[in-house]
Design a protein around this nucleic acid. Structure first.
Lengths: 245, 245
DNA sequence: GCCCTTATTGATCGTTCGCTCAATAGAAGG
DNA sequence: CCTTCTATTGAGCGAACGATCAATAAGGGC
């Protein structure tokens, strides 16, 4: 169970990522400020994803083919650069369409959940996204908890409300959403995320088509979800045990 | 979505852990070599779990109330100390009883799976265990992939073989275990692990009784597992698509 | 009490960290 | 061609890194 190398050795996969699809920054020496900044941000995302947020600014500069002081021309501090990465990777990649999907009244709520997860996981299963997310969590930053708080409030809460309605259960206004109801969705959610984690963080090659694996997981988990949800809501309505916290 | 503090701020939870149940090392100045070594290892586990494997030896020494050079009296290098942590946290905490549980012929295989996961997750849902595991994965160490390889080979493979037999399907000798069959178990497994990750890595307080949450997840996921498994095996037997890799 | 063993320390090595600043060089406008 | 602007660099700051080693001091055996 010993690790192969003592303290070195970044991740095996470069995985520079789609980088948003914009055309690559020209490799010329003297770039415009705008182009250089974009190049630094994109390079920093790939770099810190590989080596972790403790990565050194000199190593980042070397990878970009520039000198280290130039980084500080564009970002006053290393922390500011990391902050920028948060915005770029997490805020900018949040799709408002997700919030619309889970409210699409024309669809059964399980199908809304399915469509959200398929699309969400496709975006999340990214080398930089997953690794920086986990790395931030390990360093005690509140990014992961705040981000998952968004998922909880903007996605899962409306979904649970729709599931309540579809099952003829009292609305959240009448009976507040119980933590166990969220756990139900986070359970399936976690199983899907774990597929990416094993590949991107634990370095397990795994199955080629993770998208198909997740689709199969949803096919297995969704059919029984509404019935389980009804049971959970009924249990939460009883004063038997304290459900919250 | 900005993090609260730029680069400082370890995890909110000390969570020194049960430390194996052995009596604490006396706080006296001059300890026996054996006691000092144990104190260093236990302290290092808690320390590196909090701040990550990039934590500094001087900070570790300060927390232990000793000077930094003393660490190098007991461990030739920082990497050697981390190696020792791997043995202590992962190798020593592997329970051979797990391998016996999943082979217990008297029990239905779903019950074997249930019992394994309940016990396994209880041990895994530990501040140091989860955080060092993830931290090692981010640093590119092969600990996580090798450990999960053990779970796959020693736990899931015999379980799948038993599920095959219980469903009257061909044995792995006749038809090799397909990757999709493992994904079936890793899916449920991942959902359970994710419960701990959200708390220990992402810093979400979450539900108090994670053990009960996981039990409920298993209750929801297990009933349909055998039927799904049969479908996966049947699909893997067809030459329709390449199942492996 | 003294001595011997060794756990522990203080001082320090060479390196590298994040970061600063004056000097340099490449493109644009006249 | 020359000037101007500024992107970029080279040199270097103080601090902290992992690691080393001779000096110190606490305890046990006689």
């Amino acid at each position: 169970m010993a690790s192969s190398s003592p303290a070195t050795g970044p991740a095996p996969e470069p995985a520079r990522g789609p980088a948003g699809g914009q055309d690559r920054v020209p490799a010329g020496r003297r770039l415009t400020a705008e182009n250089r900044e974009r190049q630094i941000v994109e390079g920093a995302i790939a770099f810190f994803a590989e080596v972790g947020l403790d990565g050194h600014t000199r190593a980042l500069a070397a990878r970009l083919g520039i000198t280290q002081p130039l980084l500080f021309r564009y970002f006053p501090t290393k922390a500011a650069l990391i902050e920028r990465i948060y915005e770029e990777v997490y805020l900018k990649r949040w799709d408002p369409g997700w919030e619309a999907t889970v409210r699409e009244a024309a669809l059964p709520c399980l199908e809304r959940f399915r469509r959200f997860e398929i699309d969400y996981q496709r975006r999340i299963d990214d080398y930089a996204w997953l690794r920086i997310f986990v790395s931030a969590g390990l360093k005690g930053f509140d990014l992961p908890s705040r981000y998952l708080g968004m998922v909880r409030a903007r996605i899962f809460a409306p979904l649970l409300e729709a599931m309540r309605a579809e099952s003829g259960l009292p609305s959240p206004a009448a009976q507040p959403l119980a933590p166990d109801e969220f756990e139900l969705l986070f359970g399936i959610h976690g199983a899907l995320v774990y597929v990416g984690l094993r590949s991107r963080v634990y370095g397990i090659d795994g199955t080629a088509d993770r998208d198909a694996v997740r689709a199969a997981m949803l096919d297995a988990a969704l059919p029984g979800l509404l019935a389980t949800h009804r049971r959970v809501v009924a249990a939460a309505a009883l004063p038997g045990r304290t459900a919250a916290r």
